[in-house]
Computed example of a mutant assay.
Amino acid sequence: MAEPVSSIPNLGPASEAAFARAGIHSAEELRALGADAAYLALLKSGTPPHFIGYYVLVMGLQGRPWNDCKGDEKKALRVKFDALKEAAAHAPLAGLPGPLARELDLLGVVARK
């Protein structure tokens, strides 16, 4: 049986539900994707961007407490977070629910501006 997303440190039921909406249903899937790809999937599925949510995910995947992120490490994560927000904003199907966006993407549908 797959490990739930909430088995990753710092992630609880709300994170688990958000990742499920993005099509990520297990801790194994989340670990395989990594923090950046998984967070981008969240953004593309309609989850509003939130820097703390991003670095909580990064810290959790490293097995670290959420508040362990400080100084230069936090500044570097802010740069990555901003890049992920930008990438999600320019994704052709950004803002659509994750499963719908994936199906439309498989069909080759591109959202109009």
Rank of each mutant, 00 (worst) to 15 (best):
R21K: 15
P48G: 07
V5P: 09
L61H: 02
L11F: 11
R64Y: 00
A94V: 08
A87F: 00
K85D: 04
Y54P: 00
D68W: 13
E86T: 12
A18K: 07
D72S: 13
P97E: 09
L100V: 10
L57Y: 10
E86A: 15
D72F: 07
G34F: 06
R31I: 01
L93E: 08
V5E: 04
A14D: 11
Q62D: 12
A111M: 11
C69E: 11
W66C: 00
A37M: 00
R102H: 13
P13G: 13
A87I: 00
D72I: 12
P49Q: 11
P97H: 08
A14E: 13
L40Q: 02
A27F: 05
C69A: 15
P4K: 14
G46S: 04
H25A: 10
Y54K: 10
P97Q: 04
L61W: 01
N10W: 09
V110E: 14
G60L: 09
L40V: 03
A89P: 03
H50W: 11
G12T: 11
K113A: 15
A76T: 04
S6A: 14
K85M: 09
A94D: 12
F81H: 10
L77G: 06
H90K: 15
R112T: 14
V79R: 10
W66V: 02
A91W: 10
D105P: 07
A94T: 11
A37C: 02
A2C: 01
A41R: 14
A22W: 03
L96C: 02
P92D: 12
M1G: 15
R31G: 02
E28Q: 15
F19R: 03
L43I: 02
Y55I: 03
A83Q: 13
A89I: 01
G23W: 07
V109Q: 07
L84S: 03
L93R: 09
P13S: 15
L11H: 06
A38R: 01
G46W: 04
A22K: 13
A22E: 06
G60D: 06
G71T: 09
M1T: 14
I8Y: 11
A37P: 02
Y54H: 04
D105C: 06
M1E: 13
A89H: 11
S45R: 06
A20G: 04
A88I: 01
V56S: 15
L84P: 00
L93V: 09
V79W: 00
H25D: 14
L100T: 09
L104Q: 05
